Deep mutational scan, measured.
Amino acid sequence: DDWEIHFNNITIRLHGVSEEQIEELKELIKNGAHEEELRKWAEEVNR
């Protein structure tokens, strides 16, 4: 699925990401992940 997530003036566009991966991302954000951590997560997902 395609997703677009907005938070802290950042837009993250995701393509072909599962519901499970979105839940992981929500947890990262909820736990106060920094932009660098989110980038690493996105790189892993996009492999």
Rank of each mutant, 00 (worst) to 15 (best):
D1H: 14
D1R: 15
D2V: 14
D2P: 12
D2Q: 11
D2H: 15
D2S: 13
D2R: 09
W3F: 14
W3V: 11
W3M: 09
W3C: 11
W3L: 10
E4D: 10
E4P: 00
I5H: 05
I5K: 03
I5G: 03
I5T: 04
I5M: 10
I5W: 08
H6V: 12
H6Q: 11
H6S: 09
H6T: 12
N8A: 11
N8W: 01
N8K: 13
N9S: 11
N9P: 02
N9G: 15
N9I: 06
N9H: 09
N9Q: 07
N9Y: 04
I10E: 08
I10R: 04
I10Q: 06
I10S: 06
I10D: 04
I10H: 09
T11W: 01
T11C: 05
T11M: 05
T11S: 04
T11F: 10
T11N: 08
I12Q: 07
I12G: 03
I12A: 06
I12W: 00
R13F: 05
R13L: 05
R13Y: 06
R13P: 02
R13I: 13
L14G: 03
L14M: 07
L14Y: 00
H15T: 13
H15P: 06
H15D: 08
H15Y: 05
H15R: 04
G16N: 15
G16A: 07
V17G: 02
V17W: 13
V17E: 01
V17Y: 06
S18C: 07
S18Y: 06
E19P: 11
E19M: 13
E19T: 11
E19F: 14
E19I: 13
E20I: 10
E20N: 11
E20P: 05
E20K: 12
E20G: 12
Q21P: 00
Q21W: 07
I22P: 00
I22V: 08
E23C: 10
E23K: 10
E23Y: 08
E23N: 14
E23S: 10
E24K: 09
E24H: 12
E24V: 11
E24G: 07
E24S: 10
L25S: 00
L25D: 00
L25R: 00
L25E: 00
K26Q: 09
K26N: 08
E27P: 00
E27M: 13
E27K: 12
E27R: 14
L28P: 00
L28Q: 01
L28Y: 03
I29C: 09
I29G: 00
K30V: 06
K30M: 12
K30I: 09
N31S: 12
N31P: 00
G32R: 03
G32C: 04
A33I: 12
A33F: 05
A33S: 04
H34M: 11
H34S: 15
H34F: 08
H34R: 14
H34V: 11
E35C: 07
E35N: 05
E35D: 07
E35F: 09
E35I: 14
E35P: 11
E36H: 06
E36M: 05
E36G: 07
E37D: 14
E37R: 05
E37K: 05
L38E: 00
R39P: 04
R39Y: 10
R39E: 12
R39G: 06
R39F: 14
K40I: 06
K40D: 13
K40G: 04
K40W: 05
W41N: 03
W41T: 04
W41D: 02
W41A: 11
W41P: 02
W41Y: 04
A42S: 03
A42I: 15
E43V: 01
E43N: 02
E43W: 01
E43I: 01
E43T: 02
E44A: 12
E44P: 00
E44L: 07
E44K: 11
V45P: 00
V45R: 03
V45N: 08
N46T: 12
N46R: 11
N46A: 14
R47D: 13
R47Q: 15
R47P: 13
R47I: 15
R47S: 15
R47L: 15
R47F: 10
